[in-house]
Each structure stands twice: as structure tokens, then as C-alpha cells.
């Protein structure tokens, strides 16, 4: 069939190109997410969650870090308020991520923006920020990123929950460390020199102290705030740039 080169096919092609770019970008991360999803499902069933509950949690919350933190507190009767609060604390970073990415998503109309931002995670956010350094951020690109990632997270959690008992000792295979390893890699992606090192050190020391002394998930927000404040203190205003060439 010969494609008609009218406006509509051009638009469809544009959507396809953007979506493909998104899928290509997220592809390697799917392989990082699947073992973690399997592990989440397996640990969750050991904590007493059913397969349906695990699947719903992954499909509706779709934020792995907070889902793991919630598992730590998953004892019956469930402390709903404490779990919801801890979830919010762990996910407070999403406020800052959407704050940073929002203005760069200006091509998206209202409702579409609020739909794609449901899929905001460390990974989709980092790849979107990377994308806007080269091209404007589109709805198709973000869905191309988000949907395969969403599907693999939800399905691997469900699978992990179904065959959970098979992975009885994840420590033996080092799988419990995969999550930490992934975050350590993502951290290095934000490295900008010595000041980042200081921020990380301040964060880690504060988080470790609070983790040892205060029960619950407070260490996350306490550590992060200490690091953010140290970055604000380290800030030096750049000398005003001479954008304008002196007039001849």
C-alpha cells in the first residue's frame, strides 16, 4: 500500500517515531525492573498479601521503593495511616520531580499531562529529563516510556506473587541487593562533581543516624532534607554572564 502523504499520516508517523523512541529508551530498564518486581511479589506473599492484592498494589501505586517500604510495615492488623504516611514520605521526591519536569511538558494538554504524570517514577522521570535536553517532551514519547515499564512491573509482581515460594532466600542470590544497586547507579547519573559528593555524604550520615535512632521511614526525608539544605548552602551565584557582546 502506498501511504498517502497527507497531514494525517504525517501526524501518525510522528506519534510512532516518538513512541518508538520512548520504548527504545526504557527497554534496558525493563530487564532491571522484572527481577525486582518478581522479588516484590515473592516478599509480599510471604508478608501475607494475596496475588490479587500484590497485583493491585503494583498497578495502582506503581512506585517500587515505597511498595517495599510498606512491606516492612505490613503486619496485621494493618497500620493504614502509618503505611500511607511512610508511602508519602518515600514518594515526596515525586513532588520535586514533577515540579522539575512539569514546565518541560508544555506540549501536553491538561488532562494528558495529568495522565502521563501518573506514570512518573525515578526511571521514567530520569529518561524524560534526558530527552528534553535534545527534543521537546511529547505525550507519545512519555507513554512509549511508561507503558512497557508499567506492564513489566505489574506483571512481574503478579508472577513473583504466584511463584513466590520458589524464591525463598533472595539473599542467597544477592537479589535483595538489586534495588540498592539500581539506585546507586541512578545516583551516579546525577553526579556533577565535588558538591554532589558533599550532598551525598551529608545525606547518608544524617539518614544513617535517624535510621538508627528513630523508628519508621523518617530517615528518608530527614536525610534528603539535610542533603538538599547542604546543596543550597554550597550554592554560589554565578558571576553575571556577558551575554551581550560589547557594541562595536
Amino acid at each position: 500500500m502506498i501511504p498517502k502523504t497527507n497531514k494525517k499520516t504525517k501526524r501518525v508517523e510522528g506519534i510512532a517515531t516518538e513512541a518508538t523512541a520512548g520504548i527504545k529508551a526504557i527497554f534496558p530498564l525493563i530487564f532491571a525492573a522484572i527481577p525486582i518486581g518478581l522479588l516484590y511479589g515473592a516478599v509480599a506473599t510471604q508478608k501475607g498479601m494475596s496475588v490479587l492484592e500484590v497485583t493491585l498494589a503494583s498497578a495502582l501505586v506503581f512506585a517500587g521503593g515505597s511498595q517495599f517500604v510498606a512491606l516492612d510495615m505490613w503486619h496485621y492488623p494493618l497500620p493504614i495511616f502509618t503505611i500511607a504516611f511512610a508511602t508519602f514520605l518515600v514518594n515526596l521526591r515525586l513532588v520535586l520531580m514533577s515540579f522539575s519536569l512539569g514546565p518541560k511538558a508544555h506540549k501536553m494538554q491538561g488532562l494528558r499531562k495529568y495522565l502521563t504524570f501518573f506514570f512518573l517514577t525515578d526511571e521514567t522521570w530520569a529518561l524524560s529529563e534526558q530527552r528534553v535536553t535534545q527534543k521537546p517532551l511529547t505525550y507519545s514519547f512519555m507513554l512509549g516510556l511508561a507503558l512497557p515499564f508499567y506492564a513489566s512491573w505489574t506483571l512481574s509482581s503478579a508472577l513473583g506473587a504466584s511463584v513466590g515460594a520458589l524464591i525463598e532466600t533472595p539473599e542467597k542470590w544477592g537479589l535483595d541487593f538489586a534495588f540498592t544497586a539500581m539506585f546507586a547507579c541512578l545516583i551516579m547519573g546525577f553526579w556533577k562533581g565535588k558538591s554532589t559528593g558533599i550532598t551525598l555524604l551529608v545525606t547518608a550520615l544524617t539518614a544513617a543516624a535517624v535510621y538508627k535512632l528513630v523508628p519508621g521511614a523518617w530517615y528518608i526525608i530527614a536525610g534528603a532534607l539535610a542533603g538538599i539544605i547542604s546543596a543550597a548552602i554550597q550554592y554560589k551565584p554565578e558571576p553575571p554572564k556577558n551575554d551581550k557582546q560589547p557594541l562595536p
Binding site: 520535586l96 525515578d122 546525577f190 550532598t199 551525598l200 545525606t203 542533603g227
Partner: peptide
């Protein structure tokens, strides 16, 4: 500057119990 430090700081804080 503070906002730019948010992602690494939060990720670091999240992994601190295991990492440190």
C-alpha cells in the same frame, strides 16, 4: 541548586539502611 540536589539526595537516603 537545592532542587537539583533533590534526586541524588533522596535516592541516597532511600538506600542508606542497606548501603551504610
Amino acid at each position: 541548586a537545592a532542587l537539583q540536589a533533590v534526586p541524588p539526595a533522596i535516592l541516597m537516603a532511600v538506600i542508606t539502611p542497606v548501603a551504610i
